[in-house]
């Protein structure tokens, strides 16, 4: 239908934008405002021994960006907001084709140490009522100690996509854990960013190399802790 309907995924596009910055030796577009809004839902999965195994991460894209992406894929040519069963299979994994330097925007830490996750192991995708959904499972490479607080935060360090965590995460495989969602403290995040920038300026540091990842400051996070055995 159009010359524009070349397949592209959200992560591809972020990579494109990002690689342009990296290529020109610049850090992320810190002051750029987000163009994609994503609601994230989390499900924490424990294995049969009660150890944290992985996370199911659900993303629902805002309707404007959904419409654009679906149109990029050449689906729903009549812009009805729904797709046929045949089209649904074409949609499969639309945002799961991650390239090497795409991190996945789910960040797990325990006592300040980042814990690695695998890439997506299983996924589902759908387009209903004008909104794109996807859901994917990632396992822990580094498992957190379940009985000490650990944090799952969802953010795009470049702030091109704005994430919000919806609801309290579901926990499967254990019943003695608590999950608390923390909204960002906007004033504190703003002040912190300013202070960090002042410090870089004052010490004559390299603005580009040392620029704080703004995404993290403005992120929503979940703090998890389970009962000690």
């Amino acid at each position: 239908m159009s010359n524009l309907s070349i397949c592209v995924t959200a992560s591809d596009m972020r990579r494109l934008i990002l690689s342009a910055f990296i290529a020109s030796g610049h850090s992320a577009p810190a002051l750029a405002h987000p163009h994609i809004f994503v609601d994230a839902e989390l499900e924490i999965v424990f294995d049969s021994e009660g150890a944290p195994e992985g996370i199911w991460i659900s993303w629902s894209y805002d309707p404007f960006f959904s419409m654009l992406l679906v149109s990029d894929l050449g689906l729903d040519p009549d812009f009805t907001g729904e797709i046929t069963e045949a089209e649904r299979s074409d949609l499969d994994g639309f945002d799961m084709n991650w390239i090497e330097d795409y991190h996945g925007d789910t960040h797990v830490t325990q006592s300040g140490t980042a814990l690695a996750l695998t890439g997506p192991l299983e996924w589902e995708s759908d387009y209903r009522d004008g909104q794109l959904f996807s859901r994917h499972l990632r396992h822990f490479i580094d498992r957190p100690a379940a009985d000490e607080e650990w944090i799952v935060a969802v953010y795009d360090p470049t702030y091109y996509t704005s994430y919000g965590i919806i609801g309290t995460p579901r926990i499967t495989g254990r019943s003695d854990c608590t999950a608390r969602v923390f909204e960002p403290d906007w004033d504190a995040a703003g002040a912190q960013l300013e202070a960090a920038l002042d410090e870089i300026l004052a010490t004559g540091g390299d603005f580009e190399a040392d620029f704080p990842a703004v995404g993290a400051l403005f992120a929503e996070e979940v703090r998890l802790i389970c009962a000690a055995p």
Binding site: P63, F64, M67, G130, W186, G190
Partner: peptide
């Protein structure tokens, strides 16, 4: 330090617009 609030407001308004725009175009 209230600029963050304005930015935040503009951003949540934009989020609302993303939905309205899609509906309007459809």
């Amino acid at each position: 330090g209230s600029m963050e609030r304005v930015t935040l407001w503009a951003q949540s308004a934009q989020r609302g617009f993303q939905e309205q725009m899609a509906l309007g175009l459809r």
